[in-house]
Each structure stands twice: as structure tokens, then as C-alpha cells.
């Protein structure tokens, strides 16, 4: 079991990992090379680089620095977090890892697609958690909206319950073969009957009758994990205390996911705070 698993390899996640490692914790970073930082052509406002530095170089340096300090880094996409009370299970598409504490630093990915009907039918056929709500869709027709491993993972959680599962990519390309029926047409609307979801209408004027729709867009991010674990959010932002701790003891959130200034400075600072708080938590529970 790891003392700390950090999800995300950007400045927030790597800073948390470095501070925790230097305090002697056994640390694993699970990352996917997807970071807002990688999109920054040049960063001129970060301390200490005379001629600025590219986002790509700063990101790679961070990964290298953590590796040199003995942090264990694995390039795998996390699809779920479960457990509690200092015993968390972090699931990737291919593996499961255990940890006493978790830092989520996955960036501020949007979890809700811009589709007409999403808000109206939330909790009335639209769900963000297959494990929680699959129960209500026994032998029913289900759609999963998404196009990556996260969507496949949610479909896998539903396959023994539902009568039929279709993955809807909403105009995106499916990232890999899934074994599920895939429809790539763009969605124009989710429509209902009697206050609950009854069908998906596509831009090509075709329709798919469904009883339930599970949302799992792109890679799973902090907001997705929050919905599954029961981390309190307000206006789409995860709520934390001054130690970057969520309402679940031992789970911390930092960087862009925590809202506020979307800057490397702030991400690195919050990562340090979260890393040190995880150290305190793990040492006090030993």
C-alpha cells in the first residue's frame, strides 16, 4: 500500500508528490500527459527563468525531478476512486492501487456536456456514477456519453445490469475499440416522457430510445471522482479547507481543479500544501 497516490502529473500533482516524498512517504503518481501546462507555448511570469520556459519543458522537468527524488510514476489513466478511512482504492483501466491518502490534481476538466436536456433530466435518467445508480437500470436500455477509457469503464460497471448499452461519442472519435455498440453522431437533445429520460435525438435526425444516460466524457477528472466519492462541490468547484482537504478525510484537491487563479505558481503552492497535509494525515494515522 502506498502512503499517498497523486492523480495528475502537472505542477500541482508533482509538487504534492515531491513534498510528500521528501517527508519520507511512499508516493505513487498516476498521470496521463494531459495538462493545461502542455498547451502553454511560453511561460514568462514564473519565477526564476531568465528567458521564460515552455510549458512542455516545465512539465517534463517536473516529472524528471519527481523521478530523481524516488517518486514512483506510472503513466495510467485513473477511472475510479473508492474506499475511505485511510484505505483508498485507486482504479486505472488496467490496475488497482491502494493508498492511505489521495491527492487529486487532474485539472479543471468539464464534466457536463453542452447538450440540451442535461440539466433538466439530471437525477431523472441522467447520472454521473455507474456504481451508484446502475441499480436503478436493471434490464433497461442505457447510453454512456463519452469516447475514451472512462466511458468504457463506466459501461463495464453497467454491463451485467443493463439490457443494452450504447456508447455515444457525440461527434468525437472513439479512442479505442470497446466491444460495445458505438454511435458517433452528434447529439442535438436529450428528451423525456413523464419527467424522465426516454430518448436521445441526434443531429442526423435519428433517435435512440433509452431509460438512462451515464455521463463519462474524455478522461475521468476531479469532478467525476467527486460525484462518485461524495466530495462536496459548489458551483462546479470542489470545496476544500485551508489544507486543501476535501470533506473526505485523507483526500486532497489542488491546482486548477481547486478553482481560483489558473497559474503554475498557485498550482505548485497548493500542491505543497496538499502534500504536507497528506504527510501529517498519514503520520498521525500510523
Amino acid at each position: 500500500m502506498y502512503d499517498l497516490i497523486v492523480i495528475g502529473g502537472g505542477p500541482a500533482g508533482i509538487s504534492a508528490a515531491i513534498y510528500a516524498k521528501r517527508a519520507n512517504l511512499n508516493v505513487l503518481v498516476l498521470y496521463t500527459m494531459e495538462s493545461q501546462l502542455l498547451k502553454a507555448h511560453k511561460i514568462d511570469n514564473y519565477y526564476g527563468f531568465v528567458n521564460g520556459i515552455s510549458g512542455q519543458e516545465l512539465y517534463n522537468n517536473g516529472i524528471g525531478q519527481a523521478q530523481n527524488l524516488g517518486v514512483h510514476l506510472v503513466n495510467e489513466e485513473v477511472t475510479d476512486i473508492a474506499g475511505g478511512d485511510g484505505e483508498f482504492v485507486v482504479k486505472t483501466f488496467t490496475n488497482e492501487y491502494q493508498a492511505k491518502s489521495v491527492v487529486i490534481a487532474t485539472g479543471n476538466k468539464k464534466i457536463k456536456p453542452d447538450i440540451k436536456g442535461i440539466d433538466e433530466y439530471e437525477g431523472r435518467g441522467i447520472s454521473y456514477c455507474a456504481i451508484c445508480d446502475g441499480f436503478f437500470y436493471r434490464n433497461k436500455k442505457i447510453a454512456v456519453i463519452g469516447n475514451g477509457r472512462y466511458a468504457i469503464s463506466e459501461a463495464n460497471d453497467l454491463k451485467n445490469i443493463a439490457a443494452e448499452i450504447t456508447i455515444l461519442t457525440n461527434g468525437e472519435k472513439m479512442a479505442e475499440d470497446s466491444g460495445y455498440i458505438v454511435k458517433t453522431a452528434k447529439i442535438s437533445e436529450i428528451s423525456g416522457d413523464d419527467g424522465r429520460v426516454s430518448k436521445v435525438i441526434f443531429e442526423d435526425n435519428t433517435e435512440l430510445p433509452v431509460d438512462g444516460i451515464f455521463i463519462a466524457i474524455g478522461q475521468a477528472g476531479g469532478g467525476d471522482f467527486a460525484k462518485k466519492l461524495g466530495i462536496l462541490m459548489e458551483n462546479g468547484n470542489i470545496q476544500t479547507d485551508e489544507n486543501m482537504e476535501t470533506n473526505i478525510k485523507g483526500i486532497y484537491v489542488c491546482g486548477n481543479l481547486a478553482g481560483g487563479l489558473l497559474q503554475v505558481n498557485k498550482a505548485a503552492y497548493e500542491g505543497a500544501v496538499a502534500g504536507l497535509a497528506a504527510v501529517k494525515y498519514v503520520k498521525s494515522s500510523k
Partner: peptide, 11 residues
């Protein structure tokens, strides 16, 4: 609620 549901435990 259900006993097996994560967010229910926090609720």
C-alpha cells in the same frame, strides 16, 4: 440511500 453508495455515506 443505499449502503453501497459512496456519496450516500458522505450525505
Amino acid at each position: 440511500f443505499a449502503t453501497w453508495c459512496g456519496p450516500c455515506k458522505m450525505q
